[in-house]
Design a protein around this nucleic acid. Sequence first.
DNA 1: GTCTATATTCCGATAGAC
DNA 2: GTCTATCGGAATATAGAC
Lengths: 200, 200
Amino acid sequence: MTKTLKAEDKIKEAARSLFIEKGYEATRTRDIAEKSGINLALLNYYFKSKSQLFEMIMLETFQHFMKGVLSTLNDPNTSLTEKLEQFVDSYIDMLMSQPNLPYFIIGELKNKPGHLLEIIQQKETILQSVFFQQLRAKMPDTSPQASMQILVNLTSLTIFPFLAKPMIKGISHMSDPEFKKMMLERKKLIPKWIKMILDN
Amino acid sequence: MTKTLKAEDKIKEAARSLFIEKGYEATRTRDIAEKSGINLALLNYYFKSKSQLFEMIMLETFQHFMKGVLSTLNDPNTSLTEKLEQFVDSYIDMLMSQPNLPYFIIGELKNKPGHLLEIIQQKETILQSVFFQQLRAKMPDTSPQASMQILVNLTSLTIFPFLAKPMIKGISHMSDPEFKKMMLERKKLIPKWIKMILDN
DNA sequence: GTCTATATTCCGATAGAC
DNA sequence: GTCTATCGGAATATAGAC
């Protein structure tokens, strides 16, 4: 499978892995070439420059990320409670298997806010998602900003612990398995907490 | 005030500002020299190398950060509720005036987990803080891990929105003042939410 | 399309005058 | 202590053979 990739795709996969792991500045084109098993010159042949290769990968990664978010938040066949549970469950699984992804997205979104706004704002999909409709129906008396606060809470409680993993482990003297156990426990707790906030 | 700094301190201040803004890899020693108004050679004269300068700044910054956390969490004269309110209030103020700080701390803690554990673990101060004692007194029937979950929630709800600021603004079409207003509103909301979780 | 060899730019660090 | 000038290496990018 991986062996049958064309050179162009081999480069892209190696670059994606390295950019996500180490960031743009710390990634060397030589390392991308070596990891992909192809020659350094081919990188420039196919992608013109390191920065253009990075741009392409960042856009793809971010679009894939947003697509994943929306697939859960836009499901018309699940209740609000089910969406909360699915969101937390699938995101915690994803973050456990790809721990560097949030650093990458958060970090790059800081450096290049402009580019990605276009993707976020395309058709205003999140604000108009089924999730948001269900949220507003549940909180009819509050301001529109109130449902945004709920989404911020949901993502904060889910994603931030993975960003703060080194600090959490240091403060509480946790091992890796203990940290994992704590995050699995949050799968049940976060939806419960969000519902408490909603029902306040 | 700033004008009377010695060359050594001018370099350090410029370096701190640039490292926090752009990270280690993206910061050029030439930029540090230019920003501090001194010569590039002096950087190596005083600090030997870019990496040693960075090490020093990171340690100082992180120690200062931890000191701030502890000064609130360790106050014997405030109740648990007051600590929650003070923590959120002072951290949101801090994050509004130093928006790049969390990126720096989170990012560098990922790259060099080893160094900083020593600082975090010094005397195990957070686990033994007054805040934690008050937390455990409030939740006597739960596991020790449960109070750690509360601290994770508190920091997640407070810090993550600033890391995700570009995404939040993009999704909800917020201006900078509107984002600021949203964060000020969270000053009241977060302590309320945490107390709800505690009283569940 | 793919490689080798090389050009070019950039950056951290230092030598040496003052 | 501070500066000018420069070194030496590393990293990106390209030229040109195959």
